[in-house]
Amino acid sequence: MSQYNKIIFTGPVGAGKTTAIASLSDSAPVKTDARASDMTKERKASTTVALDYGIMNLPGGEKIHLYGTPGQERFDFMWDILTTGGIGLVLLMDNTRTDPFQDLKFFIGKFREFIDQTNLVIGVTQMDLSRHPPLEAYHSQVEALGLKSPIFEVDARSREDVSILIQALLYSLDPELEETP
């Protein structure tokens, strides 16, 4: 089995990591949510305190493991462990946050080594609620950090949206990939 068998989902609290994994996973995701007790509770009642986990079954019995990091910074000691063997990083941003670009810089900074070794795609959620900042502004921010990444508007509940995001990740890694096995 390939040693590269994980896709990592990260992003701030409420960006849709758990939902995105659920929309791709072949099994009901394992969640480790708990009642929010800190500032997180202002955004939602419960939050992921360890990680989310889902599986995509591939032909031939191989599996792709989908991991979602907890949104809270105090669990970031787990992130290095998670990324080992990862194919790439899916960063989900919540466009209704007070300062999404601060989030963007934080997560790119925390995963920079992993991103440089693999690749990054960014999905911006909640754009139906807030069109600002627009995607162009995200591109400018990411380019200022020395990266060129696909950035799409995403509804984490939409399997199609999340699928396109993952396809962009794979094609960014190898544009000449074909679908045929």
Partner: peptide, 25 residues
Amino acid sequence: TQPANPAAAEKVSLFKKILNRLKMS
């Protein structure tokens, strides 16, 4: 860009399988 070694080739093969899986569903 052709896969330079068996590990890279294995990776490409895995990526193709993921793509097929995503496009089938």
